[in-house]
């Protein structure tokens, strides 16, 4: 089980034992990590599971496809690190990954 750390905007850190094959969003919800709303349930359709992938984790976590790009484009706080956590499937290569959560979801 890869270990992933999610850091809330206020600085509170949550290190979880993530389940592979599930999305990062689902893992965060399963571990009661606050700061991810996931209104649409993981369909890349609402943008409320926004997160920032820290450091050099992009190769292992993948890149946003066109639909995800479109949803991210609506976020006023979007950065180069922005991803929707429902579009990141957890695998063993993500062991040690650090993800920051935004100030708000909308």
């Amino acid at each position: 089980m890869p270990t992933i750390t999610l850091i809330e905007h206020c600085g509170t850190s949550h290190t979880i034992e993530a389940e592979t094959g599930k999305t990062l969003m689902q893992n965060a919800l399963d571990n009661m990590v606050p700061g991810i709303d996931a209104d649409c349930g993981g369909a890349c359709a609402c943008g409320t599971c926004h997160c920032f992938v820290e450091g050099d984790w992009e190769p292992a976590s993948g890149t946003a496809d066109a639909m995800e790009e479109a949803m991210l484009g609506m976020r006023p706080d979007r950065t180069e690190q922005s991803r929707l956590s429902c579009q990141i499937e957890v695998n063993d290569a993500l062991d040690g990954m650090v993800v920051r959560l935004p100030e708000y979801q909308m």
Partner: peptide, 10 residues
Amino acid sequence: RHHSSFGFGV
């Protein structure tokens, strides 16, 4: 929050 009143997508 899992409802359709706000619509989805862009």
